[in-house]
Nucleic acid binder design. Structure first.
Lengths: 135, 135
DNA sequence: TTTATCTGTAATAAAAAATATTACAGTACA
DNA sequence: TGTACTGTAATATTTTTTATTACAGATAAA
């Protein structure tokens, strides 16, 4: 189970709904029953990609760095860096086998195509679109 | 790390390259440095979806149930049943929060769209295409 | 200037998932 | 009847994810 994308999306949704306000990791974590440190870890990734900003110290917290119309889920997906959708083999196949020798490269190519398809789909949906679905 | 899709693809590739022969789980497992029981588990899924056939007893083993031109990676992906590409949250968000109350349904919808995009892409590539890439 | 409340980060523990191993019943062929 | 497979369960090991604890550093307010 991997809820990193969900954490990132939840925070971005809250930030989008409360523009101007700085939200703390404790507040967000409470709103989603998750540990505050996990929230801060995801926020680090989002900040590294320029999607959010953070302020330290008392009255510190997180805010959007871009208008929500400019943030797509492709940006979120890339920032969060989930494991590949098709998984990843742990063991090296037998190089003496003609199939084993080559299959790694072909599987990598297939995985790349799938990641590209995911990103293409996600790039069509912004945080703004997502939040507008809420009542 | 999840190598189930890779195991299934590796076996299907070997079966495609050696048509008519029955391959044993031990043979395949040795060719990819993986445990034979894992191979048999993946084969059960592929058989449940009608992609392969198996024969018990001495001289038993696995073979394709369809011509490789008829097997797409979408079939493989559905058979193997990987965890969702966007992950899945473990904890239920706070229902008292207006965002927490609704976000699950919206995230599910997004996940469905991504799975559909993956399957659409994978449905364009057959095992036959894949194996033809090999020297 | 001191205190309170945040972020940032590391270290460690606990929980969950994937893989490996062992074991053995059942099947089919020689 | 012995051999070599599949099918499957039970268990152990390894890996990954999540939770917890701890604390340094930053910033605002008392």
């Amino acid at each position: 189970m991997n809820g990193q994308f969900q954490i990132a999306t939840h925070v971005l949704t809250l930030l989008c709904k409360q523009p101007g306000e700085l939200l703390s990791s404790d507040y967000v974590a409470g709103s989603m029953n998750v540990n505050p440190v996990l929230v801060r870890k995801e926020m680090r990734k989002l900040r590294a990609c320029g999607l959010i900003e953070s302020k330290e110290g008392k009255t510190g917290g997180y805010s959007l760095a871009l208008p929500p119309q400019k943030i797509t889920f492709a940006d979120v997906y890339k920032a969060v860096k989930l494991p590949p959708a098709l998984g990843q083999a742990k063991n090296k196949p037998n190089p003496a086998c003609p199939v084993g020798k080559q299959i790694g490269a072909h599987l990598d190519h297939l995985a790349d195509e799938v990641e590209a398809a995911i990103i293409k789909k996600l790039s069509t949906i912004t945080i703004f679109d997502f939040v507008n679905q809420f009542d």
